[in-house]
Structure formats: structure tokens, C-alpha cells
Write a protein that binds this DNA or RNA. Structure first.
Lengths: 121, 121
DNA sequence: CCGTATCCAGAGAGATACTG
DNA sequence: CAGTATCTCTCTGGATACGG
């Protein structure tokens, strides 16, 4: 959806999708699952997230078709989460953002130091 | 910061920067300011955001060196917000994400419809 | 015009306890 | 092991009113 100036028009729907997919923990979960499938508690060990939030994150990603929940065996229950083909298409753009934060971290720190110094209070 | 497998290692700092720069309104403000400098109330007309949230968003972006606040004249006060060179480097990666939401919107909708149908409750 | 100050409601996050 | 169920608490964010 672009206007005559070929400019991106951001709708509420775009924002909604972004909120679901690029939130605090989703990015971390995606990065992990792009490496290989992971179990629930395995993800918990890798990411400093509570059970509740991890469950919510996985459900949202599963609902949107980004990850897949696979029951591997019963007794004891084993569940594995895998990235889907749709989820894989997210990796490059997300990595681009992450690389940006990496490359410009110091610029940002310097800007903040300047701002905090200049700004009274 | 990559490990031996050349895998991105996401730190709390990455997440902090992402949270400041890719939040609900920042993306919209960035898109607008990449077009041309804008006044405060001009941005309000273009974006469905409250005064409070717009002020907060602009301050955060200004603090991190992404946008610049320029007082154009007094009496009546006129203030202009401009994208900085650092801010411009954000445009491509952010556009990549937005394009992703655009291209995969329908896949996501379908996945959600399936999920909601299959999931009792 | 460009904000700041204040209040208030709702979402999200942590801690904890419990279940198939 | 892989969750669900509460409860509490903070924090965001909208609405509103006021100020330089």
C-alpha cells in the first residue's frame, strides 16, 4: 500500500502485526528458533523470560504462523517449537534491524550523553 | 557482537535501543520526518497520537540523536523536527520490516483464521 | 503554538502455587 | 516437562486541564 509518491502508508494493521512480531521477546525467540528447534524450558534457559510471558509469546507467534508447536512424545510430555517457512522470511529484515542497533550503538550512546548533559534536570 | 557460529547475540542493550526506536509511534514519526521536516501539530494531524505520547516519542528520538528539534521562530513559538543523518540510516531497515508486514499480511491473516478455528475456546 | 501537569484505566510482567 | 491460574504491581497511554 503506497501512495502516489511511492511512500509507505502505515496502517493500524501494520502496527498490529509489528506489535505481535517485533515485541520484547519475539525477536529473541525467533533468533533462537532460526538456529534449530527448541523445547519450552530450553528457551527459558536461553532467554531471561518468565514462563507466563514465554507462553504468551509462543502462542502469538504460533497463531500468526511464525512458529509451529510440535508434540514430540508423551510420558513425559515433550514439545518442540519450530520456525515455519513464513517465520524464516522474517529473519533477514529482523537481522537488518539488529545489525543497525549494533552498528550505531556508540553513536546513540554519544548522542544520549550529549543530550543528558545539555538538558537541565 | 557475534559468537563463533556468526550468530547475532542479542543483549539487553540491543533490546533497549529497539524499544526506544521501534515502538508504536516512533516508526510513524520516522517515516514522516524522512519525507521532510515537520512541526509538532503537523505531526499530530498526520499521526493518530496524543500530545503526551508524541512529546515523549520525540524526546526519546531526540535524545538518541535520531531527530533534531529546531526552534524556527518565537512569538508565536515555532518548532520544527528534522531527521538527522543517524536517523536516515534507520530508514532502510525499518522499511524492510514494513515491507515484510505488507507482503505477508495475508499469510498471517490466514494462519490466524486457521488457528482460531482449530483452537477450542 | 508548543508543550507540561495530573489523574485514571487497562495491559503487561513478575511471583507463586498448582495440574496432566 | 509443559504449561494454567491467580494475584499484585508497575508502567504505558489516553483524556483533560493548564502554562510560556
Amino acid at each position: 500500500m503506497r501512495d502516489t509518491a511511492d511512500r509507505l502508508v502505515i496502517t493500524a494493521e501494520h502496527r498490529e502485526i509489528l506489535g505481535q512480531v517485533l515485541d520484547k521477546w519475539s525477536v529473541l525467540v525467533l533468533e533462537e528458533l532460526c538456529e534449530c528447534p527448541r523445547r519450552f524450558n530450553e528457551l527459558r534457559r536461553l532467554i531471561p523470560v518468565t514462563q507466563k510471558s514465554l507462553t504468551a509469546t509462543l502462542r502469538r507467534l504460533e497463531r500468526s504462523g511464525i512458529v509451529q508447536r510440535v508434540v514430540v512424545s508423551d510420558r513425559p510430555v515433550a514439545v518442540e517449537y519450530r520456525i515455519t517457512p513464513l517465520g524464516k522470511t522474517l529473519r533477514d529484515p529482523v537481522d537488518a534491524i539488529l545489525r543497525w542497533t549494533e552498528e550505531h550503538r556508540h553513536d546513540i550512546e554519544q548522542a544520549r550523553a550529549r543530550f543528558d548533559e545539555d538538558t537541565p534536570g
